[in-house]
Nucleic acid binder design. Sequence first.
DNA 1: CGGCTTGTTTGCATTAAGCAATAATTGCAC
DNA 2: GTGCAATTATTGCTTAATGCAAACAAGCCG
Lengths: 168, 168
Amino acid sequence: MREVQAPEDPAAVNEVAAAVVTASRVLVAISARSLATVEDTLTVPQFRMLVMLDSGGPTNLSRLAEQLAVNPSTALRMVDRLVAAGMVERDADPADRRVVKLAATSSGRRVVREVTVRRQAEIAKIVALMPLDRRGAMVAALREFADAAGEAPVDPDAFSGSALPGWT
Amino acid sequence: MREVQAPEDPAAVNEVAAAVVTASRVLVAISARSLATVEDTLTVPQFRMLVMLDSGGPTNLSRLAEQLAVNPSTALRMVDRLVAAGMVERDADPADRRVVKLAATSSGRRVVREVTVRRQAEIAKIVALMPLDRRGAMVAALREFADAAGEAPVDPDAFSGSALPGWT
DNA sequence: CGGCTTGTTTGCATTAAGCAATAATTGCAC
DNA sequence: GTGCAATTATTGCTTAATGCAAACAAGCCG
C-alpha cells in the first residue's frame, strides 16, 4: 500500500509543528489574560462551567459533568459554589423529579460576556498588527488545519455574541 | 495621529477570530490526548513542572515556582510528590546552603519524552492530512500571528528532541 | 555585629477532582 | 400493576493544587 501524500520531509514537519506550538502558546496566554479580569471572582474550572451553561442553555447535572469531562460529584460541588455566588440557578424539572435544571443567571452571563469581549479584543489587537493582505491566508491555513483535524468550525456570527464552549 | 492600517472590517476580524478559536480547540484537544497517556501517573500541573525541569535544567524552588506562576509553597508540595514518585531529585547547593537544587531524574525525563513524542505524532498526523502545498502558507500565517503577538518563535530543532516549556 | 534580604519550609484554609455508596425517581418487563 | 433495572443527584472519603502568612535558615552589607 502506497502513501497518498508524497514522502514526508521530517524537517518540514518539524517546522510546521514548531509554528503550531508557538501559536498555541500565544493562544494560551490570551486565555489566561482575558480570564484574569474576573480571576478574583472565578476559578478557571468555574468559568468553563459557566461558559457551558451560558452557551448550551439549561441542562442537568449529568450532561454538564459529561461535557466538562469531570465526575458528577465534582460538577455538583462546583455548581454549589456557583449557586452560592449567584451565577447559576437551580430549578426542579417538572417532567422528571430526579433532574435539576441548571442555568446561568444574568449575573453569570454578564461575567462570561465580559471575559469573551476581552478575549476577542486581545485577538483582534493581534490580528490588527498583521499585514492586511495576510489575514486571508491566515484564515485559510487555520481552517485547513482544523479541517484536517476533523473539527467542526466555529460560526463567526454565533460566537461573536456569546460563547466559546469549552475553551478556557 | 492616524492608524497605520486601513480601517477594520468588523466582520473580517470576527472571521479571523473564529478561525483562531477553532484551531485553538484542536490544539487543546491534542494536548489533552497526548497527556492522557501518563494521566494515571501524573497530574497536569505535575507534568508542567516536569517539563520545566527537563527543558530548563536544574533550578531552585523559587525560580521554578516563578516559572510556573504558582506560590512557592504550592511548588514545594508538588516537588515533594514528584520526589516521592522518583521523577525529581533534590540536591543541596554547596555554594548557598539555603537553596535546594531540583532536577528531573532519568525516569522523569523519560515520561516527558514519551508525551512529547506522542504530541508531535498527533500534530504530524494532522499536518500530513493537509495538502502539501498549503503547509507553507500555514507556517507563514502562524508565524505572522505569533510575530504580531510579540512571541519569540520556537526553534524547530531545539524542540524536536526534548521540550515544549510551559505548554500543557 | 545587627539588620535586611533571600530561599525554603510549615500551618491553615479553600477549591478541584475522582471513586464508591446511597437515595430518589423513572421506566420497563412480566 | 408490581418489582427490578437504569438514571439522576447527592454525600462521604481521599488526594492534589492553590494561596497567604508566618517561621526559620542562611547569606549580605553597612
